[in-house]
Computed example of a mutant assay.
Amino acid sequence: MTCNILVGGSWGDEGKGKCITYLCYKDQPDIIARAGVGPNAGHSVEFHGDKYGLRMIPSGFVYTGARLLIGAGVLVDPEVFHYELDYLNKYQVKGRTFADLRCSIIEPKHKEQDKANEYLAKKIGSTGTGCGPGNRDRVMRVAKQARDWESMEGFTADVPLEVNTALDEGKDVFIEGSQGYGLSLYYGTYPFVTSKDTTASTAAADIGVGPTRIDEVMVVFKSYTTRVGEGPFPTEIKQEEAESRGLEEYGTVTGRRRRVGEFDMEFARESCMINGATQIALTCVDRIYPACERVKDYADLSGEVKRFVEDIQDATGVPVTIIGTGPDMEDTIDLRDELL
C-alpha cells in the first residue's frame, strides 16, 4: 500500500501533467484523486502523440485501470466536468470518474462575478473561472454541493471513505495537486495568489487522507520558472530574452503569455520545506539543455546537466528522482529505484 502526493513547486505550469501521466501509467495506482482549487488550473497531457488540456478530471486518466476521483476540497464546474467526460471518452472515463458529494459547485453566477470584479481581473490576474467567488460562498456556507446539483447525479462518491478503504485493503492511491506553492493563499506571493492553500498538506485534506497515511511527497519544478498574471518574480527575464532562448509559453486555461525567469534555488528550498518534499521531479531540462532532449538514462546526461541537478539537491536537501527530457511521457529519466 502506498499513498503518494504530487504538487507544484512554483507558480503552476511546472509540467505536473506530464509527470502525473508518467507516474500513473508506470505505477498503475488503484485510485487517482485530484486535489487543488478547481477549474482555474489546467494540466497539459501528451500521451502517445496526442495532446490534452484538462481542468477537472485527474491527469492520470491514461491508466484505464484506475478510479478517478475529485476530492471534497475541489470546486467543481459541472459544465467543465461533463465536457471532459466526453472529451476523454477514448479512455473510458465515464463510469470511473466521480466527484466527492461534498464538492462545492461553481455556478454561472460565480464566473460572471469573477470576470466582473476589476480587482481580481486586472490587479490579481484571476482566470475568470469562478473559483474565488465559489470559495467565498463556501466560506460563507451558502455554496451548493455536488450531491444537490442535478447534473452531478450519478457522478458523486464518498471520496474519503473510498480512498481510506482502498488503503486499508493494501491498494495504491495517487493524489495530484494543481497550481503551485507560490500561489498558496497562505504561503505564496500574497495578494497575487489563488483562493486557497495549494501545498501538499492541503492536498491530503482535500481528498480526506490524514497525514500519517502519506508515504511520499513529490514536488515538481521546471528547469526554468514561469508564472501567469501579476505578482513578484525575482528571477524574471525580459520577454525578448525568453523568446531568443526558445522559452515562450502560454497558459493552458487562459491562453495568456507566461512570464519567464531563471530557476530560483532559494524559492525551491522554501517550497520543499513547506511541502515536506521527499522527492523532486525536474521537468523541461531539454528546454535549457537541448542536447539532452529525449535522453532516458542519467549516465547519458552532460556534466552541465548533472551539476544543475546536484545544485538543486544541495539547495533543497531533497533527491531529484524524475527528470523530464521532452514533452512526451516516455521522455523521462526515472531514478526512484536508487532511493530503495
Results as ranks from 00 to 15, higher is better:
209 V>D: 12
78 P>H: 09
118 E>V: 13
303 G>K: 14
160 P>C: 11
253 V>F: 06
49 G>K: 09
156 T>E: 01
177 G>F: 06
221 F>S: 00
220 V>F: 10
186 Y>Q: 14
18 K>R: 15
202 T>K: 13
237 I>Y: 01
65 G>Y: 10
226 T>S: 15
46 E>R: 10
46 E>D: 13
309 V>E: 10
131 C>K: 02
187 Y>V: 11
85 L>D: 07
32 I>F: 04
237 I>K: 00
102 R>T: 13
218 M>T: 12
53 G>C: 06
278 T>G: 09
177 G>N: 11
129 T>L: 06
303 G>V: 12
105 I>N: 00
275 N>K: 07
273 M>K: 06
239 Q>D: 00
277 A>K: 11
24 C>S: 14
60 G>R: 13
81 F>W: 03
22 Y>S: 06
269 R>H: 15
79 E>P: 06
158 D>M: 04
36 G>T: 04
283 T>R: 06
321 T>F: 07
92 Q>G: 09
73 G>D: 01
30 D>P: 04
4 N>G: 09
90 K>H: 13
19 C>P: 08
215 D>H: 08
188 G>S: 05
149 W>C: 00
321 T>G: 12
291 A>L: 11
19 C>G: 11
103 C>I: 09
185 L>N: 09
207 I>D: 10
100 D>E: 05
76 V>I: 12
292 C>I: 08
285 V>K: 00
134 G>L: 08
333 I>Q: 03
302 S>H: 03
76 V>C: 05
269 R>C: 14
82 H>L: 05
188 G>C: 08
247 L>K: 01
179 Q>W: 02
69 L>E: 08
123 K>E: 15
316 T>L: 13
210 G>Q: 13
99 A>K: 04
329 M>Y: 06
226 T>N: 12
336 R>F: 04
244 S>F: 00
149 W>S: 00
33 A>Q: 08
10 S>G: 15
208 G>R: 00
222 K>C: 00
157 A>N: 14
267 F>C: 03
148 D>A: 12
194 T>W: 04
327 P>G: 10
74 V>E: 03
67 R>S: 11
338 E>P: 04
244 S>L: 00
62 V>C: 10
97 T>S: 13
128 G>A: 13
247 L>D: 02
40 N>I: 15
52 Y>M: 07
3 C>W: 01
112 E>S: 14
66 A>T: 02
137 D>W: 05
288 I>D: 06
31 I>W: 06
75 L>S: 12
39 P>C: 11
75 L>T: 05
275 N>P: 03
300 D>Q: 07
42 G>E: 09
316 T>P: 14
170 G>N: 13
307 R>N: 14
325 T>E: 03
218 M>H: 02
63 Y>S: 08
99 A>D: 05
190 Y>F: 15
264 D>R: 02
38 G>H: 01
282 L>A: 08
270 E>M: 12
66 A>S: 13
